[in-house]
Design a protein around this nucleic acid. Structure first.
Length: 434
RNA sequence: GUGGGCGUAGCUCAGCUGGUAGAGCUCCUGGUUGUGGUCCAGGCGGUCGGGGGUUCGAAUCCCCUCGCUCACCCCA
């Protein structure tokens, strides 16, 4: 009397055997990288008030308009299975008063998300994402740090043929002005545009850059570019991010048509793609969202983060079945709590771009050398930086200026002046002789 | 869903019989004209869960509502 056999719903899957092992291995590596950089794990509920996404992600986005699994509970409240992670994390930041913690607050998650889309290779209705968010600082070094972390993770996981595209969307103000300019351009060529693009001129004109439609593409070639209309502050911020990435040896291409499908992005946006994937080539991406916390009812608070698809990373990492060798995994050691920092990079002049650049270069070098390192990202005074470093349990603090550094042993209270580029070596030597 | 308890700053709480909000911790700044852990000073931070009522006046009294929590029911 039983009916047809029940299968997993369209767009969902079971994780079995060696795939489960691959996922565990990926998680171990992600945790080592993110917790080593000072990120703390967060998990938020699988569903939230629908309004969180309507407001946070944006009414005009495809996600909110047609991809959410929304339902009512018995009390008539509208709830939605989370389609993305940033809005929930920001909601949690507000709900738990994290603005009172030392900024920026760095959080990471590995959770499943839900979008009601047509399933295809690398695209599912329930999918898993690894995400990282740094909330509470607008320092360009935070943008660069998050990008470098994702880059390291993709390399560590063995994702092949990775490319990074980078752009800046500017602040809400300049973006709004640009948006009007673009809308005017689209309207003046309306007859050549694809119908769906025409229908989005008011709601989401930026998406026109994504169109494959021939007429639309022609129109877009002559369209004004956002990058050319940034204001001085946004331009300086973007240049600083680029400079730090250059110093870190991260290759990227500037793509002024890079558009992410969420409304909250400001300034830096980026996407990593893998040519090893099919139509869904994005493996991870993110950007800055300086207006989101305020939109959700908080005071103005900057933030930046990214998310990367677990299934896509595994697909692009080689082994046909999406398997990741678990033997290579190295754990950073002690479970969930943040391990003490070995080297903290303070800035002699907190507002100096040159000091920031030196500190960031040392941060990358220290991490490459296997040190747990962090740098000042919160705009604190020097006293505040030392205090922050102490709270992180830092063993050494290097107070860097452009070429010189004061390397301080926080346990002994001793301090010596050395060349900036000798810092990492000195710390390695110091730790070895303990 | 039913019954009890509780909702004051991010956290822990004070605020008596109504006179229109305070402490400690945290975070930031300063004392130390560039240097942490102790100390001192200052600052940020509150629609007193929300709405209505009584009153000259409500965090305080009354009603409603929302949320949390414990118990019951049931369950991973």
């Amino acid at each position: 009397m039983s009916g047809p056999r029940i299968k997993a719903p369209r767009g969902t899957f079971d994780v079995l055997g060696e795939q489960a092992e691959s996922r565990s291995a990926l998680e171990v590596r992600a945790r080592a990288i993110l917790q080593g950089a000072g990120y703390e794990r967060i998990e938020t509920p699988a569903f939230e008030a629908t309004e969180l996404f309507a407001r946070g992600v944006g009414e005009a986005t495809d996600i909110v308009r047609k991809e959410m699994f929304t339902f009512e509970d018995a009390g008539g409240r509208s709830l939605t299975l989370r389609p993305e992670g940033t809005a929930p994390v920001c909601r949690a930041y507000l709900e738990h008063g994290m603005h009172k913690r030392r900024q920026p607050v760095k959080l990471w998650y590995l959770s499943s998300f839900f979008r009601h889309e047509r399933a295809q290779a690398g695209r599912y209705r329930q999918f898993w994402q690894l995400g990282a968010e740094a909330i509470g600082s607008d320092d360009p070094a935070v943008d660069a740090e998050t990008i470098v972390l994702l880059s390291s993770l993709l390399a560590e996981v063995g994702v092949r043929d990775v490319r990074l595209r980078l752009c800046s969307l500017g602040s809400p103000q300049t973006r709004g002005e640009y948006r009007e300019r673009l809308q005017a351009h689209l309207r003046s060529h309306e007859s050549s545009l694809a119908p769906e693009v025409r229908g989005r001129i008011e709601a989401n004109p930026l998406r026109a850059f994504d169109s494959e439609h021939e007429g639309t593409r022609r129109v877009m070639r002559s369209a004004p570019r956002l990058l050319e209309h940034l204001d001085a502050g946004d331009r300086a911020h973007f240049e600083a991010v680029r400079e730090l990435l250059d110093d870190a040896g991260i290759a990227y291409e500037i793509d002024s048509t890079l558009v992410r499908g969420l409304d909250y992005y400001t300034r830096t946006v980026f996407e990593f793609t893998s040519d090893a994937l099919g139509a869904q080539s994005g493996v991870g991406g993110g950007g800055r969202y300086d207006g989101l916390i305020e939109l959700l009812g908080g005071s103005p608070t900057p933030g930046v983060g990214w998310a990367a698809g677990i299934e896509r990373m595994l697909l692009a990492s080689g082994s046909s079945g999406g398997t990741l060798d678990s033997e290579r995994s190295r754990d950073s050691g002690t479970g969930s709590a943040a391990a003490p920092v070995e080297l903290f990079l303070a800035r002699a002049e907190p507002r100096s771009a040159a000091d920031r650049r030196t500190a960031f270069a040392l941060l990358c070098a220290a991490r490459s050398a296997g040190l747990r390192a962090q740098m000042e990202l919160g705009g604190r005074s020097l006293k505040g930086q030392l205090s922050h470093a102490d709270a992180l349990g830092a063993r050494y603090v290097a107070i860097v200026s452009e070429r010189q550094a004061s390397l301080r042993d926080m346990q002994e209270g001793r301090q010596e002046e050395i060349a900036s580029d000798a810092v990492v070596h000195a710390v390695l030597r110091g730790l070895r002789t303990l």
